[in-house]
Design a protein around this nucleic acid. Structure first.
Lengths: 376, 376
DNA sequence: CTGTTAGCGCGTTCAT
DNA sequence: ATGAACGCGCTAACAG
């Protein structure tokens, strides 16, 4: 136990208590240099006695390393990022690093502020799911690198930035999911959670631009959707793409709109959890039945998708692994950089982790499969 | 822009660049003391030019405050804690504090280690959802306080510890939910997610002890369940309480067991998200229909509960508010403590936030509502 | 108003 | 094997 004081004991006090010089105490407590076994024991005992704990701040000041990683995500309350952060946290803790987590609410200004906080706190490395869309808007990230802080991207790449990135292949995953729908004979497939833009562009290109200009993953997923349509020679219809605010409410409204179309979709591809719940609401209100009347595939598998009736076919993302891998790469870079400034780091690269299409029961053939038939 | 160097510029370099003394530069950059407007501008310009950023570590060393809060939760990937952490994060950031988040995997040893990390990093305050069950097992928390670090508990109280705690009234919430079931004429109500103990105690007391001995919230919720039974004079039946591992799989198995009883439950009260999904699985396998054949109420409202068929009645917890409130109290205590060591802090207390029973459609009268009293 | 000086706690030569 | 002395970057009294 320690005394009632509220100012933490220092190495000097341990030295005094043990009757040795400051540096001898520092050596044994810091675990470096040579110290005779007997003295060592004496120091350790003294430290224990007065409740000594090393001051990580002071140590960082001397050594220049903080053993702390900075993590920047849009929203820590989002289960996807929760998983990523936990993956990072577990992986880095096992290597003696702690994590400072900052949420940016998907706001680039907040992201810049967050980077500055991390620079100021002298973190050794940063993992960021950036809202930046290109190198031009990512100067804050370059700032951090210029200061010798290693940076690894997670979940989202930033085109033009020469940085390691740990991602899933959003485009391929989306393409695969939509292909699955096409295999089941669907030709009218709605895309839920599209570009948050005003108006409704009719041209594919404008739609894609709008998506890409908002969030990297959104653009990729939309392109994957288009890829699949192209593969199968299905004509693109702008009416089947959600446009506007990315909220559950608006997703519901957009799906309701699609369902009221003269030639409504027979299947929906939802790119986010809230897009799926919004769609579910719209479907229920319309009186349609999942699978029988309308097929469904969503992104981000969650426990509930498996227990509802019918169970939903979903794309599962390896959230923990994304975080763990990012931490691994970052820690590796930090180790390497330790040596000398001109670190022999390999070329940066995209590390793509596998997604899995978990097939359940929300995909079925449309009622009037192929051609000219209509439903109802 | 700054030069290509990778060692951050210091205040001395800014001073040199601006042609003033170190402390003048320090004063303007640190925002304290007096500095003439002209010199001030000159320093600011110089700082901007060479890309100066204050070293928070060095500042903390001098001032003794780190403007950092430590947060300890069981699992950052758990949506409940994700919400709490975000609440803390947002509230503290708006006051200039950052957060160091540690996950303990619900392991007390890891919690002790986490506290030590936070002590070493000299955080100004700690918010912890502790796994400690009593004061005896919470000496690590006392350690932190002895060092002058303010501590606030969140989500879970630790009986015997004189600490502020921000909680919901788990017992009352559980009682209310079960009462709702009883109102609907249910008398056989299963409790899902019980004490993780071996064997199946027949006595209420042993069950409660088992729960309390594992996790504070579990104990409270079980007692609330019993309260409601007592209120209505319903006899307790140990067979209707889940016992064993707290996993979705085991919940499913336990519910399956209950459903196979000669006198099976007509309603289920699930105290966690995974308890609910496990129950849903078991119900589906048994061929029963929700609401019509078996009523359901769960803890932790989530978006999906509202969109499944039928929508589930759930107890909603104010996760963001829990975190925000905890941060508020902690920050207040830190401000107060700033003054002098003998802080005039008020007596510690439980701050109870309201839960809400979100009524949807998973509760209905049992098919054979007690013999005589059927109306309609 | 400004510059000088002394720490904060620890790591790290360098003699001894 | 051990201790003295200096520096990390900053804040904070203190003179001037």
């Amino acid at each position: 136990m320690m005394s009632e004081r509220s100012v933490p004991p220092t190495i000097s006090e341990v030295a005094a208590e043990a009757g040795v010089g400051r540096s001898t105490a520092a050596r044994t407590l810091g675990g470096y240099g040579y110290v005779s076994p007997e003295v060592r024991e004496r120091v350790l005992a003294a430290a224990e006695r007065i409740g000594y704990r090393t001051n990580a701040l002071a140590r960082s000041m001397s050594t220049g390393v903080s053993h702390t990683l900075g993590v920047i995500v849009a929203d820590i309350a989002n289960p996807f990022f929760g998983g990523v952060v936990r993956g990072i946290s577990d992986a880095s803790r096992s290597r003696g690093f702690d994590t400072l987590v900052l949420s940016t609410h998907e706001d680039l200004d907040e992201e810049v502020a967050a980077i500055n906080v991390l620079i100021d706190k002298r973190v050794d490395g940063i993992i960021v799911a950036s809202a930046a869309l290109d190198a031009a808007s990512a100067s804050h990230i370059e700032q951090a690198r210029a200061r010798g802080i290693k940076v690894v991207l997670v979940d989202r790449a930033v085109p033009g930035l020469d940085l390691d990135a740990v991602l899933i292949d959003n485009r391929a995953a989306a393409r695969g999911a939509v292909a699955r729908l096409v295999d089941a004979r669907h030709r009218r497939i709605g895309f839920v959670w599209g570009p948050p833009i005003e108006g409704r562009p009719r041209r594919r290109r404008d739609l894609v631009d709008g998506a890409v200009r908002n969030l990297w993953t959104d653009g990729e997923r939309l392109q994957g959707y288009l890829d699949a349509l192209d593969d199968e020679g299905i004509v693109f219809d702008a009416d089947l793409v959600m446009v506007g605010a990315k909220t559950e409410e608006h997703a519901q409204a957009e799906v309701a709109r699609m369902l009221a179309l003269p030639d409504p979709p027979t299947a929906l591809f939802c790119t986010e959890n809230d897009a799926m719940t919004g769609s579910l609401r719209a479907i229920r209100e319309s009186g349609l039945r999942i699978a029988e009347d309308i097929s469904l595939i969503g992104f981000d598998d969650s426990s509930w998708a498996a227990v509802i009736e019918p169970p939903l076919t979903m794309i599962e993302q390896p959230t923990l692994a994304l975080g763990a891998k990012a931490a691994e790469i970052l820690l590796g870079a930090i180790d390497a950089g330790e040596g000398r400034s001109a670190a022999p780091r390999g070329p940066s690269a995209f590390h793509t982790l596998e997604t899995r299409l978990v097939e359940r029961a929300s995909v079925r053939r449309p009622r009037a499969a192929d051609g000219s038939a209509r439903r109802g």
